[in-house]
Nucleic acid binder design. Structure first.
Lengths: 340, 340
DNA sequence: TTGAAAGCGCTAACAG
DNA sequence: CTGTTAGCGCTTTCAA
């Protein structure tokens, strides 16, 4: 091993493979092999290289490696928004799944805007990711076309009802809504209300509402009141929408909400207004978030496998490198709380 | 413009600058200039290039550009965890701030583990990010050293009490705890309880507890009961810890919680148990999350500027390219709900 | 088991 | 305003 000092003083900056090679007195390619744990490396070489790398605090330059390899260990993750706890769990799962395999997520947010999603996808693709995770199944032809040039696995999450570009891992929102209708009908409710928000973004919430309404018809009843707010979901919005709905349609005996935030608002309103839940009013949410389990009356809801979706999406990406794309439909579960 | 067909049939794959140049009949560097909106480009050239790029569906290869430039438009973002709504807002803000400037976040999670954080930082640095955002101020010398080789701006978020590596944007957790103590004392509470979770991860929650206890002493009173759970924060955990504490120390007249999840649990327990809030028991949270505003009794809390922290961290990163690092202390605000 | 040469796609520096 | 040359740091041949 040559003199370390000449390196550390001359180059306080980031060391390259070449620096490590020179210090260790070997060729660059040998260093490269050691760093990547290539087979057929002598212990002597490995030791020399590791010492030199350690001394120089060498950090590999993935940019160069990926450029040469035409592929990186980055995964493009495109979510609609970070203002929704649902995507927190999803992202948490994705990160967990990616981390297992040493992959890194590059994040892009579409904010539920198609143009913006397109830009974000384009942007992220410019990093030659090894795969891409998209949210939802309603994707432009043009996005699919753009991605196909890259010949990388695509996994779409949240939904399974539609035609994925590649693989998909999600749940059936139709089945969930039908299960909710059946469950609530079985509990004896007949005059249903529905409350959604943010003009039914994402699309999946509309799918649920329509399936819910259809199923009620089959059961011989119907939604007597329905409100789709323009503002984003929040407990506050859910509370006031519930108050409005009950004022206008006092006959409503059960409200199905687009998500738990709204539903909790409904529950809080009922508590404040002295409405007896679940007898006078049934309340059903969607997602099964933690806090709904802790309210004095636990919130009835549909538990969705958000974290699992994330983990499985990451794993599917890996599998799709050799295998055919699959569509994985995960189960939801009705959480029978105290509000129905 | 040469014949497009020979390109589209021969190369269904990703087009390169060279392909665009050939198709447009110009040099590669000209294409490069057009793509980067360099100055002094004739309209004729721009048009030719844009047409060719459009026809080929050209996506720039940032890997190559960044390799050449020794710097990318990636920003490494290291957060402790994605199972906490607090970091959702922070990340949301970061994304918003980065997006303004065309930057992309590469995400890494430390899971509150120092070794893991070190690995993650190393991993993310290998992508030559243009900057790095870290959470908290308790950072290893070795991490600082490793980053310093890269000569990129570092911004630490959440906290301002300590010695940042570069810039910092956060709040004073000491001041927040003092303000809480003063506020609660002013409301007439005297027998205080404190409930935290997950063995006081992150460190900042310990800072708050200690400052809270110190301030109570100054005010001539003290914490008569204190519980630090080992499990993670959740409303459920907060509810049972509250029940335990009140059973063991019935004299407690006010509980300060480490965060709103725990506090909401406390509130829900009180509601279920028929404890009169705020008269028999005061409840104070920390963070000021949305849902606390919608409960029948809005949750008193300390509103923290989480989203703003994220946005400002991103902006500071940009500024630090020419300016000196700064420490920005953001304000918190006491939200006087109905629980105190 | 190790090394030498070539080049991934892009852009800074220097012509013209 | 546009082009030529060279090289970022790494890894895939191919050779020894």
């Amino acid at each position: 091993m040559k003199d370390l000092k000449s390196f550390t003083t001359d180059r306080p900056a980031r060391a390259t493979l070449r620096d490590v090679a020179t210090l260790a007195g070997v060729s660059e390619i040998s260093v490269s092999r050691v760093m990547r744990n290539a087979p057929n490396i002598s212990d002597a070489l490995r030791t020399k290289v590791m010492n030199a790398a350690g001394a120089l605090n060498y950090t590999p330059n993935r940019l160069a490696g990926a450029l040469k390899n035409q592929s990186s260990n980055l995964v493009a993750v495109v979510l609609p928004s970070m203002s929704n706890e649902v995507f927190l769990s999803v992202l948490d799962g994705i990160e967990a799944g990616l981390d297992e395999h040493g992959l890194n997520a590059v994040l892009g947010l579409s904010e539920y805007d198609n143009d913006r999603e397109w830009r974000v996808v384009r942007e992220l693709l410019s990093w030659s990711p090894m795969g891409i995770i998209l949210t939802g199944l309603h994707h432009d032809e043009s996005i699919a076309g753009r991605i196909s040039q890259f010949d990388i696995p695509v996994v779409q999450i949240m939904d399974v009802e539609g035609s994925p570009i590649g693989g998909a891992v999600g749940m059936s929102h139709t089945k969930a809504a039908v299960a909710a209708a059946d469950y609530l009908f079985g509990k004896g409710y007949r005059k249903f209300g529905y409350i959604g928000a943010w003009s039914e973004r994402p699309e999946r919430s509309r799918t649920r509402r329509l399936a819910f309404e259809d199923r009620l018809k089959v059961l011989g009843t119907r939604c007597v009141a329905s409100r789709i707010l323009e503002e984003r979901s929040s407990a506050l919005a859910g509370a006031s929408a519930t108050a409005d709905m009950l004022a206008a349609s006092p006959e409503v005996d059960c409200i199905f909400f687009a998500n738990d935030d709204l539903a909790l608002g409904g529950l809080f309103h009922a508590m404040s207004a002295g409405i007896k839940v679940p007898d006078e009013l049934g309340i059903m949410g969607f997602n099964g978030i933690d806090i709904g389990k802790a309210t004095p009356l636990p919130l009835s809801s549909i538990e969705t496998p958000r974290y699992e979706m994330g983990v499985m999406a990451a794993q599917m990406l890996l599998r799709m490198q050799h295998e055919e794309p699959q569509i994985v439909e995960l189960d939801f579960r009705i959480f029978e709380g105290g509000t129905t």
